[in-house]
Design a protein around this nucleic acid. Structure first.
Length: 263
DNA sequence: ATGGTCGCGGTGCGA
């Protein structure tokens, strides 16, 4: 299982192919595809064995897609905050696993919902998602589920380059971290990457384009996540963040997050 | 404290 905010799938189709060649994932979830469905490069991925595809995009903004070598039992999309903005795709995988691919709104610059409608949207999106998971997929009723995507929140102190300096920066404010925890707990999700990487260890999945030398300054944040519910925790085999891909030519500002799940 | 860079689409907006 891989999740990757690709920041335009058409511009970076070759990078997706490279990742597939190196990792050969059964399932690859993309966010920020920025491509209307009719222009999504389906044939290129189908030729690599990804015969089941859920593509949910729009022109220029947002967009999520699931590419799979495993057959879908069903697929759906959902809209939140009364918007059709292509941020949530759902597929049923073999073994009764329900997979959610989610692109949480970034939230703008000012971390105040009164002042900044984008931040209000981000909080409302998280609240609606949490209520829905809690009501229909609460801890008692939950089967095997996976939630992945760009959640645009770095929850731990070691998920950002400076906890102190980012406390008032959108993506790491206490109100966002609390909202993300509520979402995670709504269905009893476990952070599959932190299952392997201790909380003392710094870990980032995103580095801004606005840094001259992203690797030297290393001002990253862990915004991209893979969560699983308890039936899958015992099947987790490994997790890794493909930091190296940030150095690829014409890289996305996000890097792939990979979790291996045993059959 | 400020500005820094991308992608889309063909101007500013969103990140």
């Amino acid at each position: 299982m891989i999740t990757w905010n690709i920041n335009s799938v058409r511009l970076r189709e070759a990078l997706v192919r490279r990742l597939i060649a190196e990792e050969s994932p059964d399932v690859l979830c993309l966010q920020e595809t920025k491509t209307p469905d009719e222009l999504f490069p389906r044939e290129a991925f189908a030729a690599l064995g990804y015969r089941d595809m859920l593509v949910h995009g729009m022109k220029g903004y947002n967009g999520v897609a699931v590419l799979s070598r495993l057959p879908f039992a069903s697929s759906a999309t959902r809209a939140w905050c009364d918007r059709c903005d292509c941020r949530h795709a759902i597929v049923a995988l073999p073994g009764g696993i329900e997979l959610h691919n989610i692109y949480v709104p970034a939230g703008g610059d000012v971390p105040d919902p009164e002042e900044n409608p984008k931040f209000a949207h981000k909080l409302q999106f998280l609240d609606e998602l949490t209520a829905w998971f809690a009501a229909d997929r609460g801890t008692g009723s939950a089967g095997a589920m996976i939630a992945v995507g760009d959640f645009n929140i770095a929850p731990l102190e070691t998920d950002v380059w400076s906890h102190k300096q980012l406390l008032t920066v959108v993506s790491h404010t206490p109100v966002e971290v609390a909202r993300l925890a509520a979402l995670r707990e709504a269905s009893g999700f476990v952070d599959a990457v932190r299952h392997f990487v201790p909380p003392e260890e710094r870990l980032y999945t995103w580095w801004s384009y606005r840094n001259r030398d992203w690797a030297a300054s290393d001002r990253g944040r862990r915004l991209d996540h893979i969560w699983v519910t308890s039936p899958l925790v015992g099947r987790l085999a490994a997790a890794r963040v493909r930091r190296d891909s940030r150095g690829w030519d014409k890289a996305s500002d996000h890097v792939p997050v990979v979790v291996d799940i045993r059959d």
